[in-house]
Design a binder for these strands. Structure first.
Lengths: 341, 341
DNA sequence: TTGTATGCGTTATCAA
DNA sequence: TTGATAACGCATACAA
């Protein structure tokens, strides 16, 4: 059943049927009803492909993330999809993994699908080395690019994020103010927000974070700043080895809840009392925080707010309105039982 | 840049360009190269809308779930999307929530988008009351429907799932065999697999589970079988109130890890030693199991296997091959520290 | 207020 | 081996 069939059954032209469906131009109440009755009776729905061909859009937005099974990213996708749906858009989901090459590949894939926009979820899409971001700028030449949780400037690139640097600064300061002296920093991503958080940590310790721009990759040569990308157990083992080497610390600030969970496991294994012997702060305020024992103090980076803002911005862009290139929200420390400040 | 532009630049007809792109019929090596060079030079990609219109498919599959932020569902979506991509299909993601009405609405939405198939993720899509499944059967009239984690029979409906009943039976039996006498069962979904798991629990206790078919909703009137749908804290409070009322139990079997986490919090609050005073078993073997302390014994229902099978089946169906209507895998108990059998 | 005719960019059929 | 042309189903400019 297509528009021609409907027009025949209703005894009108296809133009009239189209008008009824799209509800814009004038159609007499009588014919409108006639057409609607036929549509109802035969359960007609317009062919989205034909419509897409004519209008050159299918009202679909590509959502690209590294790994949608990550609880944090999964939440972001949920919020984004929900907001898109509210505005009558669909979400095409792709997972690229963490390699630059596959990220590029997937961005091009989405481009070839002619989605109305591309949303990059997760700060791992923005690299410290700006050359590696060129593919994003290129994509932005054909379609608006929205980034959740990272900042990159360029035409047609819109970012929604939290002030991770300040949040980490505050958290670290609070630890210092409550008497901690040796604070270990754990991170698992050298992404945009990864560097921001680290910057905040260094700020609090009055370490010049500009050095981070120089030694590309091996950012800081300091035992108190540890890069670990691995499972909970691997994080635990890593800390074990540091501990056995004699490194002293009375607090751990992390860039991700999963790292903090690993730290908790480490503390338990070594019979360190939390938070008396060791304070721990996570990041993301994910469900994991409530699963651990003791429950995890963490930084809430307002994911829902950020995601809603992202879609609001996108809708503005698509409607040709003035839209902000960068919107920054303020993260918040959620105090639970792994700290005593 | 469209196919006409390419044909002009290459000095051939659009038919030839189309042939080169689709690589089926014969094209001389010389013209093929000419065309490919132009395509390369101008970065031409075929318009998917036009292609979709002609072929009546966009190689897209709709994935529908209740809530993609649920860690378990998020994992399923990840596996499904990855497998689809491997077969050159895209995934359109929709979240319907748990209401029947909105589920129906979203199924119709996906139908109107003309996706090549619809995948229902999560057993909450199959209700015990079969009338409520009619919308699925209806959808299957126009497009293959795949169900992950539940069984529903009907033409064009393909299910991939685990033997949840047997797994719960085994887990409960193990508790009984290791000397537990009063086992509490906690569940949060009256879905297909929800009922299966409960059935397995009742089997182990030699209770006739057929009564479940009668009192529609209020399945079993027994203090040891508790339906709770809520947050970790709500689960904890619910158990607190049972405990204070004097209900005695030495083990808790749950239908979801989140319930088990709530049980763990309850135990801690009441200074019950795990697993000495109380054993707890979760379900799904999600990341939450490793976050808790002690770590949670849980049932692994082979999500990845199930998802891969789902897509394999789908590809078979789309290629017109013989495909199994129902594929059942065997779940496995993953023993950690909340049990001592 | 309604109808006619055209374009959107492919793929596929038929001829050459 | 290649080219011309008809679908595919809709939206819309223009005519009436």
């Amino acid at each position: 059943m297509n528009i021609y069939d409907v027009s025949k059954k209703a005894g009108v032209s296809i133009a009239t049927v189209s008008r009824v469906i799209n509800g814009n131009s004038y159609v007499s109440e009588k014919t409108r009803k006639k057409v609607l009755d036929v549509i109802e009776e035969y359960g007609y729905t317009p062919n989205v492909f034909a419509r897409g061909l004519g209008l050159n859009t299918m009202n679909t937005v590509g959502i690209l993330c590294a790994d949608s099974s990550d609880p944090y990213i999964a939440r972001a996708i949920f919020y984004l999809q929900q907001e898109l749906r509210r505005h009558n858009y669909d979400a095409l989901l792709c997972c690229s993994g963490y390699e630059l090459e596959t990220k590029q590949k997937y961005v091009n894939l989405l481009l070839s699908k002619r989605t109305d926009a591309i949303i990059l979820v997760g700060s791992n899409f923005v690299a410290a080395d700006d050359k590696k971001n060129q593919y994003i700028r290129d994509a932005a030449k054909s379609v608006p690019v929205l980034i959740v949780n990272a900042a990159l400037d360029g035409p047609n690139i819109y970012c929604s994020l939290c002030n991770d640097r300040h949040a980490t600064y505050q958290a670290t300061k609070s630890l210092l103010n409550s008497g901690h002296e040796k604070i270990l920093y754990l991170y698992n991503a050298k992404s945009y927000s990864g560097m921001e958080k680290l910057g905040g940590f260094l700020d609090a310790l009055n370490i010049d974070s500009n050095i981070s721009d120089n030694n590309n990759g091996n950012i800081i040569n300091n035992d108190y700043i540890q890069y670990i990308h691995g499972t909970i157990d691997e994080v635990k083992e890593h800390l074990n080895s540091l501990y056995k080497k004699g490194l002293k610390f009375d607090a751990i600030v992390t860039a991700d809840d999963i790292l903090a969970i690993g730290a908790l496991k480490f503390a338990k294994e070594n019979r360190l009392s939390i938070p008396d012997d060791l304070s721990i702060i996570g990041y993301n305020n994910s469900i994991l925080c409530q699963c651990s024992d003791p429950e995890l103090t963490s930084i809430d980076n307002k994911l829902e707010t950020v995601c809603i803002n992202c879609i609001t911005t996108l809708m503005g862009v698509l409607q040709g309105k003035e839209a902000p290139l960068k919107t920054v929200f303020s993260a918040e420390i959620v105090k639970r039982d792994t700290t005593r400040f």
